[in-house]
Structures are given as structure tokens and as C-alpha cells.
């Protein structure tokens, strides 16, 4: 069972990486800007277009490969931002446990009483609907939750007088913070948290595409592919949005399985 899920997850994620590499080196089955206006919304599995064409007659597979960049890179930005800053903030609480915990909890409560889309709406209304800005905000808004998790772990470690003994043994403080706390004790939960944030960022980008604030064409992203295709769905032309939607689902489920596998492994250790 574990082997199957591992294979499945790596396969999916490797495919995405291959797509990304292909797109960045220009190995594409079709010209992404070539419009076949006489072959609009062709069904998949025909001889010329493996996954069919979209509403402008562009090849869906090509755009799927090309879309990996705009779809996943902003999410990765959000994740890396949230994880680095969040874990540093969390680890810093070894110095001021009590108040640190309070502040982090307060920030967390603030963010929990505000839907993330609402924050984004505010930012869009006041600034501009720019995808990297949006992902920056998603990243920042996750910092407190990451910090809280690290902080909880720090508290547990403190109770075990792990930290005090480390300090007593003369280790420099940054070694304790980064190596002993974050790396030895938090990597599992941090990885799980990263995949959660990634999932949310991806779904958020897709939702924003539907609302018209996502990545804009002609740049392709899986989100705006689903959105554009959905316009034709009710007329029975379901493929051009279903294919990217399934792709999203596959990637997210792979992430989910991988994380669970990881957590289980760590639990057993």
C-alpha cells in the first residue's frame, strides 16, 4: 500500500517537473500561441492534439506544460516565505517563551477570523491584482500558523529540558535554533505544513482565476485554463476545463499522500 502511494505521488510530481523543464527548454508539442480557429474545443485523443484544444484552438497539452510555471512558482514563493520566516519566528520563542506564545496566538486568532480571500480582496482593491503580490500576502498570512506549530514544539522541548541542557553544554545559540530545534525536531511538521500551504495557495490561485484576478492570459496557468474552459462546460464541451482540473486534483492528492507518508514515517521513528 505504501509503495503504491509512494510510486503514484513521485510519478505525478516528476511529471510536473518534467513539464516545467520541457516548457523552459522549449520542448513543446505545439506552438502555444498558434490559434487553430477552425479546430476550437477539439476533444482529447485526436491525432493532432493529444489532449484536445481550448476555446481558441490552442493545444491543451502545450498550455498545461507551459502553465506549470505560472501555476506553481507563485505557490512555492508563498510556501518558502511562510516556512522560513514562520520557523525562525517560532524558534526565537526559546528566548521569551511566555509572551512569545501570547503574541503568536493573538496574531493567529486575528488571521483565523479573516478569510484569506477577503484579505486578498482588500489588497487587490487597494493595490493591484498581481499574482506575485497575492502570493506574498498568502505567504505572510501563514507565518503565524507556522510559528505557532514550531512554538508548540519548542515548549515541549523546553519541558524536557532539552534546550537548557543544550545551552548548558555550550552550543552556540544558532546551532541550537536551526540544527537541533528546526532540523531535528520540526522538519516533519514543517514539511506537512508546507504541503498544506502549497495546496491552499494552488486552490486560491484557481479561485482567483474564476473571479478574474488570477494569472492573466496570454500567460497560461492551470487556473485560467480551468476558468476559460468552464465557460463552455454547460454546453457540453467539458474537456478543456476537465483536463486541467484533473491535473490539479492529481497534483494535490499526490502532495497529500506524500505528506501523510512522511508524517507516518516520522511518527514511527
Amino acid at each position: 500500500m505504501e509503495l503504491i502511494t509512494l510510486c503514484y505521488a513521485t510519478l505525478v510530481l516528476l511529471t510536473v517537473c518534467t513539464f516545467y523543464l520541457c516548457a523552459s527548454f522549449g520542448f513543446l508539442p505545439h506552438d502555444p500561441e498558434d490559434l487553430a480557429l477552425d479546430q476550437i474545443l477539439a476533444a482529447p485523443l485526436n491525432t493532432e492534439y493529444l489532449l484536445g484544444t481550448d476555446y481558441m484552438g490552442r493545444d491543451v497539452l502545450t498550455r498545461l506544460m507551459l502553465g506549470t510555471e505560472a501555476y506553481f512558482l507563485p505557490g512555492l514563493l508563498a510556501v518558502s516565505l511562510a516556512i522560513t520566516l514562520g520557523s525562525i519566528l517560532g524558534a526565537m520563542t526559546i528566548f521569551f517563551t511566555r509572551n512569545g506564545k501570547r503574541i503568536i496566538n493573538l496574531l493567529n486568532n486575528c488571521l483565523q477570523s479573516m478569510p484569506r480571500l477577503v484579505i486578498l480582496f482588500l489588497v487587490i482593491a487597494i493595490f493591484e491584482p498581481e499574482i506575485y503580490l497575492i502570493m506574498l500576502i498568502i505567504g505572510i498570512s501563514h507565518i503565524p500558523s507556522v510559528a505557532r506549530i514550531v512554538n508548540n514544539r519548542v515548549n515541549v522541548l523546553k519541558e524536557k529540558s532539552f534546550i537548557n541542557s543544550a545551552i548548558a553544554s555550550g552550543l552556540p545559540i544558532h546551532t541550537i535554533m536551526f540544527k537541533h530545534i528546526l532540523w531535528f525536531n520540526c522538519r516533519g511538521i514543517l514539511a506537512a505544513q508546507a504541503s498544506l500551504i502549497m495546496t491552499e495557495a494552488i486552490l486560491m490561485e484557481t479561485s482567483l482565476s474564476y473571479l478574474g484576478f488570477g494569472v492573466q492570459e496570454p500567460a497560461s496557468s492551470w487556473g485560467n485554463m480551468i476558468q476559460a474552459g468552464a465557460n463552455y462546460m454547460l454546453q457540453g464541451e467539458i474537456w478543456s476545463s476537465t483536463i486541467p482540473a484533473i491535473a490539479v486534483m492529481l497534483v494535490l492528492s499526490a502532495l497529500y499522500l506524500l505528506t501523510h507518508l512522511f508524517i507516518n514515517k516520522l511518527d514511527k521513528q
Partner: peptide, 14 residues
């Protein structure tokens, strides 16, 4: 819940 919500809604309507 991994499918985009709006796509799911369109699918259900369809």
C-alpha cells in the same frame, strides 16, 4: 475537495 470549487459547481450543474 482538491478539485477547484467553482469547477466542481459547474460540473454539478452540468
Amino acid at each position: 475537495s482538491f478539485f477547484p470549487l467553482f469547477w466542481l459547481a459547474y460540473l454539478v450543474i452540468f
